[in-house]
């Protein structure tokens, strides 16, 4: 197990290095680094000084090391628009995004898994067919458009829920969140449902597919032949087998949700880092773009690592073969 984790950590490090190179080459080598790192309104002398300070006259590999060094110190440049360190700006917006993604994931799992399992257990029932039709719809509905329609119905027409912002936040255990105040919850509901919709369909279909496939397996028939109740067969035998792909996917989906929050945050004016990146792209605020990319990429890499470890904990076959190897 430890060997496995160490090996995965090394793989993760390699991926991070490769990604940093890609971002570096993408933004610094292909683009014009002076345009990216130096504000367009600075004069010639400032430019010269900055180029020297940034080492842009040095060879590429040295520049890369410099860039990595800066990244390690948390120095990714200053936002032109907000005039504060880009990394700090991103980290300031991060909690709002995580909160939204987390709320969406919870909705997706707690609604999607039961629906999918039911649809897989009784594939011929009209309810299951409705669930599956709904999931196709959930897959097909473009998130941003659904967001607009939700705003139109629930905020404009019915006036039930607020459509913009984060609402009141409160601090619990050192975390500032809007998930603990009624107003905050009202604000988070529409965006979270919006963000969850796609994942909900995915989780639902996965659960259904797993259910259908597993119900046909001999071990299910054998479990039934032992005289177990249908409940125990489904909830213990089948569920544990479905869980493995489900955990992998939902784990990966957390990262996906963070990325997709770009769309939901834009629609609902949610003050997270997704909205920030779109604003930054539109304002050509490049240090923020670079910081965002590095932060999200690292987040992803670590989420993937966590999922891999969790996966090996869940599946005895993987766990033991890894332990041997």
């Amino acid at each position: 197990m430890t060997v496995f984790i160490i090996r995965r950590l090394m793989q993760t490090a390699i991926v991070l290095v490769v990604m940093s190179m890609i971002v570096f080459v993408g933004v610094f080598a292909i683009g014009d680094p002076t345009a990216i790192l130096i504000s367009a309104d600075s004069d010639m002398i400032e430019r010269e000084r900055a180029i020297a300070a940034l080492g842009l006259d040095k060879p590429l590999w040295e520049q890369y090391l410099y860039f990595v060094g800066g990244a390690f110190r948390g120095d990714l440049g200053k936002s032109f628009v907000f005039n504060m360190p880009a990394l700090q700006l991103i980290l300031q917006r991060l909690p709002a995004t995580l909160e939204l993604a987390f709320a969406a994931l919870v909705i997706a799992i707690f609604v999607g898994v039961p629906l999918g399992m039911y649809a897989g257990y009784r594939p011929e029932s009209p309810v299951s067919k409705a669930i599956m039709a709904g999931s196709i719809l959930g897959f097909s509905l473009p998130t941003f458009w659904v967001g607009l329609m939700m705003i139109m119905v629930f905020a404009v027409q019915l006036g039930w829920l607020p459509s913009t912002g984060r609402g009141h936040t409160a601090t619990v255990f050192g975390v500032t969140t809007s998930l603990v105040t009624p107003d905050g919850l009202a604000h988070v509901l529409l965006p979270a449902v919006n963000l969850a919709l796609l994942k909900l369909s995915l989780v639902c279909r996965l659960a259904r597919a797993g259910m259908r496939e597993n119900m046909l397996m001999d071990y299910v028939k054998f479990a039934r032949a032992k005289g177990l109740t249908a409940r125990r067969v489904v909830m213990v035998h089948v569920f544990k087998n479905i869980l493995i792909p489900l955990v992998t996917v939902t784990g990966l989906e957390l990262g996906n949700l963070i990325a997709f929050s770009v769309v939901t945050e834009t629609v609902f004016a949610w003050p997270g880092m997704g909205k920030l990146i779109i604003d930054s792209i539109n304002n050509l605020d490049r240090p923020v773009i670079v910081a965002y990319l590095l932060v999200t990429v690292s987040m992803f890499v670590f989420i993937n690592l966590a999922v891999d470890i969790l996966y090996s904990v869940l599946d005895p076959r993987v766990r033991l073969s890894e332990a041997k190897g």
Partner: peptide
């Protein structure tokens, strides 16, 4: 392992 939208975002930003 990276979501489509993020990759597209990176590319279009660059």
């Amino acid at each position: 392992s990276f979501p489509a939208i993020l990759v597209a975002l990176i590319l279009l930003a660059v």
